Simulated scan of single mutants.
Amino acid sequence: MPPSDDQRLSEIESRLHRDDPRFARALGAGRPRRPREYRPLRAWLLLATALSALGVGVALPHGLLIATGLVLAGMAGELFDPHRRRSPSRSPTL
């Protein structure tokens, strides 16, 4: 017997509450906010910092500052991916 529409809706609601409770509360109050994965403010700030460090590292020939800028730019790139895993699964390797 296929699940009824009410069962599917309650399953979607419980999944929404589990995944992003702040968004679910705002949606219930009538003032929804975009889900966390679509709010890349931290990624933009990190990218701006990375480009600043990279620019200063190039202007003042300083290898460590250039490397820091490149690493921070890579981290910012990871933050822009909305489908990244929350926590990496650590499986023991034998």
Rank of each mutant, 00 (worst) to 15 (best):
M1W: 07
P3L: 13
D5L: 10
D5W: 01
Q7T: 06
Q7F: 00
R8A: 00
R8P: 00
E11H: 06
E11S: 11
I12R: 13
E13M: 04
S14P: 00
R15C: 01
R15W: 02
L16A: 15
H17E: 15
R18Q: 13
D19E: 13
D20I: 01
D20S: 06
P21D: 12
P21A: 10
R22W: 00
F23V: 14
A24K: 04
R25Q: 13
R25V: 04
A26N: 11
A26R: 12
L27A: 14
G28W: 05
G28D: 15
G28C: 02
A29M: 12
A29Q: 15
A29P: 00
A29D: 15
A29F: 05
G30H: 08
R31N: 11
P32C: 06
R33D: 02
R33T: 10
P35G: 05
R36L: 14
R36A: 15
E37F: 04
R39I: 01
P40K: 06
A43K: 03
A43G: 02
A43W: 03
L45C: 10
L45W: 10
A48W: 07
A48P: 00
A48R: 13
T49V: 02
T49L: 09
A50H: 04
S52W: 08
L54R: 09
V56R: 13
V56Q: 13
G57K: 11
V58D: 12
A59E: 15
A59H: 15
A59G: 10
L60Y: 09
L60G: 01
P61S: 11
H62K: 06
H62P: 00
H62Q: 12
G63S: 13
L64K: 11
L64I: 02
L65K: 03
L65C: 03
I66A: 02
I66E: 11
I66M: 13
T68K: 07
T68W: 13
G69R: 02
G69T: 04
L70C: 09
L70I: 07
V71K: 08
L72H: 03
A73T: 12
G74F: 07
G74R: 10
G74M: 06
A76F: 03
A76N: 03
G77Q: 07
G77C: 04
E78Q: 08
E78W: 09
E78N: 08
E78T: 02
L79H: 06
L79M: 14
L79I: 01
F80P: 02
F80W: 03
D81Y: 01
P82A: 06
H83A: 11
H83Q: 12
R85S: 04
R85D: 07
R85I: 05
R85N: 04
R85G: 03
R86E: 09
R86T: 05
R86D: 05
S87V: 14
S87D: 11
P88R: 15
S91G: 06
T93Y: 07
